[in-house]
């Protein structure tokens, strides 16, 4: 464990807290992509299958349960609970996620670490997480303006994997035979997708005023 990875996990937890507060207190899922939340639920449920046999630390196992529970709760609330379910707009939030899941599944089959079924599923979840934010970014693009809390949610989510990139660099230089090309590649793609958002987020927050984030 190093500070980058710890801060990355804290940023990830923060993103869950912000989103859960927004949809439970704000009673609205407007501006939130259910598609992206469904992809995250698939990512965590598939990646953390090893909960049952790979006990590397209490910290890991605890957060795996937390991430599966939170992502499932978010999908449940937006999909089934009133009044949030009425604030979700299927016409706007209509990114064809099958075009994300399909290629990631093929990639997981072909490029993985150990050729066992779990490793294929694990690689699938890594690739899927890299592109899972796309429906959310497309939704924000369509709306042009980003609600304040949503912008903090997306920023925390982008920061989490950005901090993980630093964690991988740190581990590469401090641990011998540390090699994780799959997560390095996917994590770089994932963080890259946020660059444009971060630019607009920074511009809007720079003045100290919480001017809304505008996407062109």
């Amino acid at each position: 464990m190093n500070i980058f990875r710890f801060l990355g996990d804290m940023s990830h937890i923060l993103s869950f807290v912000i989103l859960l507060l927004k949809i439970t207190q704000g009673k609205s899922a407007a501006g939130i992509s259910l598609r992206t939340q469904e992809l995250y639920m698939i990512v965590f449920c598939s990646r953390y299958l090893d909960l049952f046999w790979n006990f590397s630390s209490l910290y890991n196992s605890f957060l795996k349960v937390v991430f599966i529970a939170c992502s499932s709760a978010i999908v449940y609330i937006i999909r089934f609970k009133s009044p949030q379910k009425d604030t979700w707009n299927p016409e706007l939030d209509n990114f064809p996620i099958q075009y994300l899941i399909g290629p990631c599944a093929v990639a997981g089959l072909l490029i993985n670490q150990d050729w066992t079924p779990f490793e294929m599923i694990w690689a699938f979840s890594i690739y899927l997480e890299a592109v899972a934010i796309l429906p959310q970014l497309f939704l924000l693009q369509k709306q042009g303006e980003v609600e304040n809390l949503t912008s903090h949610y997306v920023a925390a989510l982008g920061a989490y994997r950005g901090l993980y990139l630093m964690n991988w660099v740190y581990r590469y230089f401090t641990e011998d035979d540390y090699l994780q090309r799959i997560v390095w590649f996917a994590g770089t793609v994932q963080t890259g997708l946020y660059i444009d958002f971060f630019y607009h987020y920074y511009q809007s927050k720079r003045g100290g005023l919480s001017r809304p984030v505008k996407l062109p």
Binding site: R5, D9, H12, D50, N54, F55, S56, S57, N60, L63, K64, F67, Q113, D114, W122, Y164, N167, Q180, V183
Partner: peptide, 10 residues
């Protein structure tokens, strides 16, 4: 001693 799994990250 369980094999230290390559997946020690979240």
């Amino acid at each position: 001693q369980s094999k230290p799994s390559a997946h020690d990250e979240l």
